[in-house]
Write a protein that binds this DNA or RNA. Structure first.
Ligand code: FES
Ligand code: FES
Lengths: 180, 180
DNA sequence: GATAACGCGGATAAAACCTGTCTGCGTTTT
DNA sequence: AAAACGCAGACAGGTTTTATCCGCGTTATC
């Protein structure tokens, strides 16, 4: 179990597909099957992205999700916070006030302000968050676009269309199921 | 549950006391009672600091721990790694290779090198670790020394001496126990 | 208008992790 | 010999993460 969980990995990979899909909504089920992850689990992640204003949902048949903002305006930090809430890197237990010398009544100089140790952790957390805030969905989408061949996007589009057509006309699109 | 756990908080607070104690070994039990934390739990943390070469142990009666290096040579990162092992900030599941379009046989361009998303996380982890490596025990000890009154260190020394004397001559040091 | 796809929320369960306790062992001072 | 110490392992309880399932309201399509 890591601090940045698999939920974030799922979320960002999905968001990258949404970057490519433009105005066409993609359902969480399709995104799950496309990537080979659990549809039920993914369905629990998306509402958090929606509450954070990262994606917009459309209900009903042919519904799904689209990006609610331009990809340049969604940082990794946005996604991490949306999916994980405000999870702290370090949870200070304030043990400095329990020193036996204080006998249950710690003096002001000992408990005033943030503990020096805690301050170092907060600084490290800030460094991490600043780093995450420096990269957007658009940045990684561009990097992915440079690696993938042109045909990939066409194949992807076909796959999504295929799923919709298969559901619309199961008789023609998946004849093998009835003929088996 | 946070990424940097309470064990690290306990460890560094203890190490700060060791900075002040110089060559006199302090036992994990005394350090635990002084700070109001579980002696059993603290006893599980110190061996990890010892294996990492941060503290040196002396066994037997009057044994305990001393710093194995100057406080200037022990960074927060050293302590975090010693106590938590090499815990990653993010654990990539390599879901990029599971894309349905690849049909179980992902092409080289899709799996070569580190995933762009993973790379961002690694960069954030590095930022955090660099930040932690920038502060040493000596730094925070100096900050603490500026806050605490002079009498605190004398009181601390007395408290430690008192514990040793109480154990050496229980009849005189704790008469109320036998008189009850 | 019925059906099916879709998002949403809650209940539930399994696995992993963190915290904390306990016990027994060997070592060393008193 | 006794007591204080470090060390290693087994163990239990709570929390988090991952994952599944179900029922509900909404909406496009037949
Ligand atoms: S009291 Fe929490 S870090 Fe010092
Ligand atoms: S596959 Fe793990 S972050 Fe992309």
């Amino acid at each position: 179990m890591a601090h940045i969980t698999s939920s974030v990995e799922y979320a960002i990979h999905c968001l990258l597909y949404l970057v490519g899909s433009g105005d066409t909504p993609l359902s969480s089920r399709d995104l799950a099957e496309l990537q080979g992850v659990s549809p039920s689990f993914l369905a629990k992640i998306f509402p958090r992205l929606e509450k954070a204003g990262i994606v917009a949902a459309s209900e009903g048949v042919r519904g799904g999700y689209v990006l609610a903002r331009p990809a340049e305006a969604v940082t990794f930090l946005d996604v991490v916070d949306a999916v994980e809430g405000d999870k702290k890197l370090f949870d200070c237990q304030e043990i400095r006030g329990r020193c036996a010398l204080f006998e249950g009544d710690p003096p002001g100089w000992a408990t005033k302000g943030v503990c020096g140790i805690h301050a170092v952790m907060l600084s490290a957390e800030k460094a991490m968050r600043d780093s995450l805030a420096r990269t957007t969905l658009a940045d990684v989408a561009a990097g992915f676009g440079r690696k993938a061949p042109k045909s990939f996007y066409a194949d992807l589009s076909d796959w999504m269309d295929g799923r919709i057509r298969a559901r619309a006309s199961p008789r023609r699109a998946r004849p093998e199921e009835g003929a088996g």
